[in-house]
Design a protein around this nucleic acid. Structure first.
Lengths: 345, 345
DNA sequence: GCGGTTTTCCGAAACGTTTCGGAAGACTCG
DNA sequence: CGAGTCTTCCGAAACGTTTCGGAAAACCGC
């Protein structure tokens, strides 16, 4: 019950292992008839080349695996966006004959360890970076190693690699939606700004509203940095809405924060959208299930995941990193959490 | 910039490669002083053993990877439970120094291909089977190959392997909860019964209600097989609630079906829970976000995921399959979708 | 100081593959 | 027919590790 080896095939085919190897690898110094013969023999002997021996011979051989290191944060609190992202990455990777290799850092402090380990042991061909920081040691590390990767979210200082993120123009539609409803005082609930995506979203929001503020159509928006999760949104919105002269609309930079805001409103006896409008970002599945259903910027997880892999594959093939920034266009989904601004009190 | 090899270390340490190898592997025929010396030299030379060469020598060496094949179904429709399950599996695998290897079948018809490929190429040490069928070819295949695996959900006919599922006793609490509220006519929305978990849930439900039916406390429940998703629940509940003499409570065998049921109720102008009570299963994150918030059987994804890996690891170590059935105990979370039965009309 | 044991070491072979360099045979062309 | 060129083949070495069998060195008791 031991594995069929190249030598076995050679013996059976009456050839040297050299020729069998070259026949199977379709080299051009073996007769077509021979190739055919070898292939048939190999097939009927159920020959499977030993990957390890092959890689020992040629260490540059691909593993067919893409590494994804899951941040401990995501392990503790479920991130609904992440599951879909993962699924779509697996699907797209499958299209290219590749798999995903998921790992997690053994201790939180040693961020680079899983990457180093995977590279040293040549276990993956490239990485997808998630939860990328504005100043992310992983980027420098991989850039330095010359190891192919693509990042979801773009660190500001570095250069020479590929990333995917949402188009900064996305908030334009949000602002005009709110303007159309008569809102003038807006607050923004942001994610921790050390994360590239979070910083990018906040910058996009500010970019979109700035001209309107200058034109006097909007007050200077209140920015509050919350966390990632519903509880963070709840806490932040609670204080925000209890302060004097509260905003009439709150733009949360992810849906969970928006959910927290909805809860805060209920707590304080405010009706959404009559007293306060709420906008989210991501359009996770529950966004249309909450009450009131959430107006939010739809960002397709499957599109992001597909794009990440699509960007990575050529990098893996050329074994290099090239500069590229792909932006996907989120679209505003208007539901029931936004409405006309309440009359000035 | 080429890798440091054993020979390099041997040269530097003034020993043979044999002794260096044995020193690093802590064999007992090498002097302690030598071991120490070799270790120091290896460390300062930054020596990393070549995994491929090692595995070529000893093919039984572990890869440190656990295979998970994602069903195409899950790729197309997002399954909120699945993301959390995956996260917890990665976390638990990490505890044991292992990673997850995610792949997807190239064509739907060829269910076994990814498993076969992974085994032939010795890419994983074991598998976690998800979306296991009542009659699942993968189980027979892996059993036949003697390849370690653990299944989420238990096929009925086979034996001699490990599985994890929800305890069948779970529905007892649901039934008594509903009984306490005065319900007598119950319907059940089931998932497609070819799936082991689905069949198991339905059987558990029927087991729990049977004695009450015999005692005349409940009518014979109406069972409807729907799909997995909200739309399926919507369609099934719509017809169910439009029929004469409709149930006063609907037990959906997963939360998405329950969400669909809530929508159907709204469509038909029924108020939940005044006109109809709804119970779900899983307690996915959105269950407490919908309106009314969903009474449901909480099944901890992280517990399931952890248990699956925990069961698998010893199997991998012994390279065998043993019979085992771990049951986790779901707990009823009462929220606002259940209430007293409406008065007899 | 000598046979016998224990400790410590090493050379060579092996794992399964690919490639290097060369060689045998067939074919071409003058 | 002979030199030259293609085509088709093969032996041997190599990749980096571990193990097998044995051998040198050290130690023991007498």
């Amino acid at each position: 019950m031991t594995r069929v080896t190249l030598k076995d095939v050679a013996l059976e085919a009456g050839l040297s292992t050299t020729q069998v190897s070259r026949a199977l690898n379709d080299h051009n110094d073996v007769a077509n008839a021979t190739k055919e013969h070898v292939r048939r023999v190999a097939a009927e002997m159920n020959y499977v080349p030993n990957l390890d021996a092959r890689r020992l011979q040629d260490p540059a051989l691909r593993t067919g695996s893409i590494g994804v290191v899951i941040p401990t944060e995501t392990l503790r609190f479920s991130d609904p966006f992440f599951g879909d992202l993962l699924s779509s990455m697996v699907a797209e990777a499958g299209e290219h004959g590749m798999q995903l290799r998921l790992s997690t850092p053994p201790i939180e402090t040693d961020v680079l360890a899983p990457y180093d380990e995977s590279i040293r042991h040549m276990r993956v061909d490239g990485f997808v970076l998630v939860r990328t920081l504005v100043d992310d040691p992983r980027v420098d590390f991989l850039l330095d190693r010359g190891f192919p990767f693509v990042s979801f979210g773009r660190p500001e200082s570095s250069d020479g690699f590929s990333s995917v993120d949402a188009s900064p123009g996305a908030f334009g539609t949000v602002i005009s939606h709110l303007k159309g409803l008569g809102h003038r005082r807006i607050a923004c609930l942001a994610e921790p700004p050390q994360f590239a995506i979070a910083a990018h979203r906040l910058a996009s929001f500010q970019l979109a509203i700035a001209p309107h503020v200058r034109a006097g159509l909007f007050c200077e928006p209140t920015i509050r940095v919350a966390g990632f999760h519903e509880d963070d949104g709840l806490a932040a919105a609670r204080t925000l809405l209890s302060e004097p002269n509260p905003p009439t609309a709150i733009v949360a930079l992810n849906d969970l924060l928006a959910f927290g805001t909805l809860h805060a409103a209920v707590e304080l006896g405010l009706v959404v959208p009559d007293d306060i409008s709420v906008v989210g970002f991501d359009d996770i599945a529950s966004a249309r299930l909450v009450t009131p259903s959430l107006t939010t910027l739809h960002q397709s997880a499957s599109e992001v995941g597909g794009l990440l892999i699509e960007e990575l594959v050529p990098l893996i093939e050329s074994n290099s990193n090239t500069n590229s920034e792909r932006l996907i266009e989120p679209s505003l989904v208007v539901r029931n959490s936004t409405g006309p601004a309440p009359r000035r009190s």
